[in-house]
């Protein structure tokens, strides 16, 4: 980061902090308000499942592909899943081409943990021949427009694309096509903290000045399935507990959007 960016970010931060003191955010939202969320499914013909999610101006496309592969030795009768994320240059002037770097890897792994730990994909129903052949589910997240809060946008896009996905039995000569067996999706809620102000669904400027980030993935009972604290700042124990309680309320509302 150049000194110019540094000054700009300091100015931006001052502005955001002054707003925060009045309990306000750049776009007039309260600290506990999400931007509008849209979910569109079934957009890409060649994908087994696909979805586009927007949260405010942030836009993420998720695609699901299935392939036949070998199971892991310790789970011979279960399918497998993998999640990858790309932050391509189309989405932001600060994104660069090349293999995924640590930001993209962290993002993909946090989304993956939410889906995996909530047992959203019923991997035990993805066995073809025990120990030999199972279905492998590939979730690919492609960020198209970066205006903050990629964690929630990617998690939501992944869940929506999975809901849209079929098992392509016919294409791969493994029986009839059928829907991907699913349980209940995880809902991810992300908070950003700057100057002791904690906001849900940080937009770009808030992401940029954030000192600490907390992502919480909840199941349909509001139980915790995955969490990640990120960035160099810290949270107090009380702040962490508070974030979880706030997330439990948001998750209920967001879950309705996925069920529509």
């Amino acid at each position: 980061m150049s000194s110019h960016d540094e000054r700009l970010s300091a100015v931006k931060k001052d502005y955001l902090v002054n707003l925060a003191k009045k309990g306000k955010r750049l776009d007039g939202r309260g600290p506990d308000e999400y931007r509008p969320i849209t979910i569109e499914k079934h957009l890409i013909k060649n994908a087994e499942g696909s979805a586009k999610v927007t949260i405010g101006n942030t836009m993420v496309m998720a695609g699901v592909k299935l392939d036949v592969g070998e199971p892991y030795p310790d789970t011979p009768e279960e399918g497998a899943m993998t999640t990858s994320a790309e932050l391509p240059p189309i989405a932001s002037p600060t994104f660069e081409t090349g293999p995924p770097r640590e930001d993209a890897i962290e993002l993909a792994r946090v989304v993956d943990r939410g889906i995996r730990e909530s047992k959203f994909i019923k991997l035990d129903q993805l066995c073809i021949t025990p120990g030999e052949e199972v279905w492998i589910v590939f979730i690919d997240l492609h960020v198209l427009d970066y205006d903050g809060n990629l964690f929630d946008a990617c998690s939501l896009a992944a869940s929506a694309a999975l809901q849209d996905a079929i098992i392509p039995g016919e294409r791969l000569g493994k029986g009839e096509n059928r829907p991907l067996p699913l349980g209940s999706p995880p809902i991810s809620c992300t908070f950003a903290k700057y100057a002791d102000f904690i906001v849900v669904d940080p937009r770009l400027e808030e992401d940029e000045v954030a000192e600490a980030r907390h992502t919480i993935a909840l199941d349909e009972n509001g139980d915790l399935r995955a969490m990640q604290k990120g960035l160099t700042g810290s949270f107090t124990v009380e702040e962490i507990k508070n974030n979880i309680k706030r997330a439990q309320i948001h998750a209920k509302n967001i879950r309705k959007l996925l069920e529509e």
Partner: peptide, 30 residues
Amino acid sequence: MPIAIAPRTEEILLMQMDGHMTYQEFEEAL
């Protein structure tokens, strides 16, 4: 749930979690 703290203030510096815990279990684990 691995965590890291600054022990003098007990601020949370690192926190990750996977698996399944209710909120009460989370408080106990923390």
